[in-house]
């Protein structure tokens, strides 16, 4: 049951992710991305990390993507036209990005696999627990947490400054 659901969610997730990248209407991309986040949350639920799953929906799908949708709506982006010509600046960028992405994958995947396999069994049940997440956030990861908070504050102040010329 769980395995079947995992494959279902994973297939939907990959499908919607491909849809995000491949289709040419930005509105559809946003909707597909939201759907992808929902599936990702489904996978978290299967791992019994309910808290993280709910946050995934609440923060990414519920808040951030709404703003994306907002922006795409307001900018009134027309569906993209396919570009012509074999040697195009975009293609070079694309090639560079592919190389970087593959490098990133090669760097991350072995570490991630080692991390996953090294977690002792029986420990997974409360890994996504509110208390566990909170404790990790405020003890071992306190510095990154605070740095992120500072970054967000800076961004907030910058936005207010840009939006309001006269303060």
């Amino acid at each position: 049951m769980t395995t079947a659901l995992f494959y279902l969610f994973a297939a939907l997730l990959i499908g919607s992710a491909l849809f995000v990248v491949l289709n040419r209407n930005p509105m559809y991309s946003v909707v597909a991305l939201v759907f992808g986040f929902a599936n990702l949350a489904g996978i978290y639920f299967l791992l019994e990390a309910y808290f993280i799953g709910a946050l995934q929906v609440l923060v990414y799908a519920g808040a951030i993507m709404v703003l994306f949708l907002f922006v795409v709506m307001l900018l009134d982006v027309k569906p993209d036209k396919p570009r012509r010509g074999l040697v195009h600046l975009d293609r070079w960028w694309f090639a560079i990005l592919v190389v970087l992405f593959l490098g990133l994958l090669l760097g991350i995947v072995p570490g991630a696999v080692r991390l996953i396999t090294s977690v002792p069994a029986g420990h997974e049940a409360d890994i996504g627990n509110v208390e566990r997440v909170g404790q990790a956030l405020f003890t071992s990861y306190l510095l990154p947490f605070e740095v992120a908070a500072l970054l967000l504050t800076v961004a907030l102040i910058g936005t207010v400054f840009l939006a309001k010329r006269k303060i």
């Binding site: 946050l55 929906v57 799908a61 519920g62 709404v66 949708l69 907002f70």
Partner: peptide, 20 residues
């Protein structure tokens, strides 16, 4: 075990329908 967040998450998802 995250009943409250479930409700909050779903209400935030409900926005999409209105915007779309």
């Amino acid at each position: 075990n995250i009943g409250l967040l479930y409700i909050l998450a779903l209400t935030s998802i409900g926005v999409y329908g209105l915007v779309l």
